[in-house]
Design a protein around this nucleic acid. Structure first.
Lengths: 129, 129
DNA sequence: CTTGACCTTCCCCTGCACTGGAACGTCAAG
DNA sequence: CTTGACGTTCCAGTGCAGGGGAAGGTCAAG
């Protein structure tokens, strides 16, 4: 498939895919005789993984690091584990932070839900900020 | 207190504080007769809130939006609630995504933990990518 | 009264993740 | 055989969240 099809299938743009290739997230694509990039359908899965990693707050460099582990079949398991443990710890921290912020905002929102001037004064609304 | 002290107390740099002021996250600071910025000690709390928001993945623009609500005592409660609901939904989504990625990586890590060639081949290790 | 630490503004630079646009090549349809 | 959609490379710009460093002012200590 060509780059436009792949981009549509993966929910992104040709520009971005060329950028991913240049960044090492995608292997250099095969080329047709005329120089067009030619992708196997399973490229969609790889791009999806990139998207999932991004949606979860990983940088492209971190996602690339994980993908490199897959691509290099010889990667030592210990290194793999360490890297993944690092990511896990990072993600757990991030979840904890988000949960704390969620609670803060939920309390704030609870106060804002009562349009009584006594309970909805700026001081009341914002005592959590 | 002066900008250097405040920065130290809040765990950031004078540069960043000037940038926050310019971005509207901090109100224009009072000035000493000689032009130095002069902060009240409670400025630390505001900067801490910015940091908490950031740590949770909000952009400075989003954090500013929340702070603006506090600063504008006349903000209608309904608007406040809508805005906070938006943030809550966003944060809940983000937590869900992070949790999913966490599980994916944890499974991956579990596989990588067994240095048996049969269970730790690239195909095995990476069937979740 | 000088020295050094700290402050001011100003402008430009960085890294990240793209995005736009120019200039040119390819290809299937009419 | 032309047209239009799609592809190629290359270079440059965007938005975010700051950081570097120049040129000059301020202030407390020695």
């Amino acid at each position: 498939m060509r780059i436009g099809e792949l981009a549509a299938a993966a929910g992104t743009t040709p520009k971005t895919l060329r950028f991913y290739e240049e960044s090492g997230l995608l292997p250099p694509a095969d080329r047709t005789p005329s120089g067009y990039r030619d992708y196997a359908p399973d490229a969609v899965a790889r791009i999806d993984f990139v998207h999932r990693g991004q949606a979860a707050g990983l940088t492209l460099a971190q996602i690339r690091q994980i993908l490199d582990i897959r691509d290099d079949g010889a990667a030592p398991c210990e290194h793999v584990r360490d890297l993944l443990d690092e990511r896990l710890a990072e993600i757990e921290q991030q979840i904890a932070r988000l949960t704390a912020l969620h609670d803060t905002i939920a309390e704030l929102r609870h106060d804002a839900a009562q349009p009584d001037p006594d309970t909805c004064s700026p001081e009341q609304v914002c005592r959590y900020l």
